[in-house]
Design a protein around this nucleic acid. Structure first.
Lengths: 220, 220
DNA sequence: TAAACTTTGTGAAAAGTGGCACAAACTCTG
DNA sequence: CAGAGTTTGTGCCACTTTTCACAAAGTTTA
């Protein structure tokens, strides 16, 4: 166990290991080696061991890792035992889709509020929440102990919404707007930008002769 | 111009520069320096120059870059002048949303086919395409010259669909299923996994005391 | 129990990526 | 046209992340 900075890639991969371990546990496979876990996740054995190494020693030389034990350890490390409240800002095309996306709840993220600036949308019932005016954002964030704000508004309004969320003291922002946000450094911003992924594909296709071996498949 | 591997981050940023250059051209601004372009995109001047340096020499010492010229060059590099045909496999919640997402067409990616294994969905009209049986996949991929396959099926079926797409000779796969795909290395896989992003947030919140300074905000 | 085998955990090397800094190239000014 | 000013392109350095490689620890076999 070392206490150095944990790379973001490591966190991403721990979730991948956890998924695989859950499957292995279901199949009643009791132990697994880093080599085998790597094989199943398209990662190297060394990578698996190094990633786990940031958090402790979980394996046994000669036999590998106890599936169930490692799974439990990862769940704890990754905060799978906790839940957080989420607010979605912007109830357009994307915002609506997010409100019905079951993946939030599955990961302990409860959507407990939705906001929109458009008066026609206010009061609408979307799944379990009622769309509120954006003016009510500060009060609701505080009252409902919301720690994650999801930005699903057009790029032009994204910074403004981010400022409101920061002022209301959310701890994380999940940004779906294709724009770079400026926030204080204690607030974690996670950008999700499908258009960026599509653009990368477009580049790859346009340059595939040239880059075929150069740009390699990446995990994220 | 060096012929080394181009970092994926560079590609992402080139699209950002292109967006800015398009705006600058619209405003009739003829030239721009790396410093100014960096300022407008929240990046350093050195970064701008280094990124462009992977593809050639576009600037003039003392005056900077010709807006229009650089814009055209980037469009060519990034394949903005070309279009590709796309098939979506899996017309559930996510697949349907993707079918109506305008971002594909905006980036030169035309969705020309959709497949689903569920007989009840086959024949349904979704925007401009009709949902076909998955058995028709090989023929349609070939007939319609489809080069990108989008996987929007549950994780369990994802590998099977990937195999079909590879066999049908697509060049890229955009994978929305939260699972690692195994494909021949000439096929480019781009994983898009919202759950992974949510999980990272969840980890951040679970460990924020410990990690506050350790994990830094990242651009992607 | 001892030898052969397997597998971990981790320093050390390698690779990848961004920033600095400066010579060279160009522009501007008087 | 010469000197001052501006800006590029890139070698080099610092930092982060991945891979290598191997001693140490455990397991299996006979």
């Amino acid at each position: 166990m070392n206490s150095k900075k944990v790379p973001e890639g490591t966190i991403t991969r721990l979730f991948i290991y956890l998924r695989e371990l859950t499957e292995l546990a279901r199949l009643n496979i009791r132990t697994i080696s880093s080599a085998e876990l790597g094989e199943r996740t398209n990662l190297s054995d060394a990578q698996v061991r190094k990633d786990l190494g940031y958090f402790g020693q979980f394996g046994t030389s000669g036999s590998g890792y106890q599936t169930e034990e490692l799974k439990n350890a990862l769940e704890k490390i990754l905060g799978k035992d906790k839940t957080w409240n989420v607010a979605i800002v912007g109830v357009g095309h994307l915002g609506s889709a997010l409100l019905t996306y079951p993946g939030f709840k599955e990961r302990g993220l409860n959507i407990v509020a939705a906001f929109d600036a458009d008066a026609r949308k206010i009061g609408k019932q979307a799944k379990e929440v009622t769309v509120q005016s954006i003016d009510e954002l500060p009060g609701t964030i505080s009252d409902k102990k919301i720690v994650i704000g999801v930005i699903a508004v057009p790029a032009k309004q994204a910074q403004e919404v981010a400022d409101k969320l920061v002022k209301a003291k959310v701890e994380c922002i999940l940004n779906f707007a294709p724009t770079a946000l400026t926030v204080p450094e204690q607030v974690k911003v996670k950008d999700v930008d499908l258009s960026r992924e599509l653009e990368t594909l477009s580049y790859f296709l346009a340059n595939k002769e040239r880059t075929r071996q150069l740009i390699d498949q990446q995990t994220s």
